[in-house]
Simulated assay, not measured.
Amino acid sequence: MNIARVDLNLMVYLDVLLRERNVTRAAEQLGITQPAMSNGLRRLRELFNDPLLIRTSEGMTPTERALELQPLIREALLAMEKTIQPKEKFDPEISQRVFRIMASDYAESTLIPLVLKQVRSLAPSVTLDVLTPSDVSFHDVEQGWVDMAINRFDSLPQSFYQSRIWQDDFSCVVSRENPILNNFTLDSYLQSQHIWASKTGMGVGVGVNPEDVQRLGWVDEALAAVGKKRKISVFTRHYQVAMLLSAQNDLIATLPSRLADIERFSTKLAVVRPPFDIPSFDLSMAWSPLLHHDSAHQWLRQIIKSVAEE
């Protein structure tokens, strides 16, 4: 087949169809009508002599041929995106670009203020739009609609680039009026009431089951490893809220140390080491291959790396 006779827009259609597996959603993604997308699917089936997507009880299911084509089409489109990227070098002094960054509550409290200070100094007209994990999906990042995701990731799509920002451990934040400070041991820690703050992932969160230790995170898994369990009085999805609640003189918040250090010189709160070992964790940034070679994006990544090193 002569490629000159092939409508290459059909490859874009196929990429979106295989990702969405729904004609209506694929049409919405490309800003075309559903009949136009249905016609595109018909032409693709004729081109490849294969049904590509078959309607089943579980929705539109890709054929074996479609699954073979999907990574090849994605790679070809990424190469084309790279080819057509403008070559003009990013000039931070005059740029008015808006960078959209998904950041966890932890990253927003510890990293983003330092990044913003540096950005405002070097690029006074650049804007940061900071989104929460529940605002964003991996699909948004993959498509480049969100410049970057900053969080602690258990897993990422294979196509993503990622880089570690820093490593952190844990500290306990308690009221200076909490009598536990006179004898801060594992036993007194376990006898106290605790505030749980979530490790927020991508997508909309759900309620917590206090009995499901495997889903409660590093602190509770570390306790379970030594056969112990803490008493949790309140669950929150915001670390800053956890620190505010820890001002009550009978509650303990066990939080990442860089966050706890914000209260290091507080007259109301004390920051102490946990009376047991908790594994450290990495804060990382992840971004789409569509933006990897973008000069403005490279500039932002360098800003984040330099701030983290300092």
Rank of each mutant, 00 (worst) to 15 (best):
T63H: 07
V23W: 09
D250P: 02
W218Y: 12
D105M: 00
A36R: 15
P179N: 08
L291K: 15
N22Q: 11
H139S: 14
A225D: 14
P86G: 06
A242L: 06
V272D: 09
A270P: 03
W145I: 10
K87Y: 03
P71C: 08
F276C: 05
L269C: 00
N49T: 00
D140L: 01
C172H: 01
M102S: 09
D7S: 12
P71W: 09
F276K: 08
V271N: 00
I252Q: 03
L111P: 04
V173M: 08
F153N: 00
P35S: 01
R258A: 07
V219C: 03
I195L: 08
T236R: 12
E310T: 14
G227R: 10
E58V: 12
I94C: 01
S175T: 03
M102E: 12
T56F: 12
T254R: 06
N178T: 07
R301L: 14
S95M: 06
V208W: 00
N22K: 14
A76N: 10
P92Q: 09
W218T: 10
M1G: 13
R65H: 09
L190G: 05
E20K: 14
S257R: 12
Q34M: 02
M102N: 03
A308W: 07
E68H: 01
D261W: 04
K117R: 15
E68R: 06
I232V: 15
T236V: 15
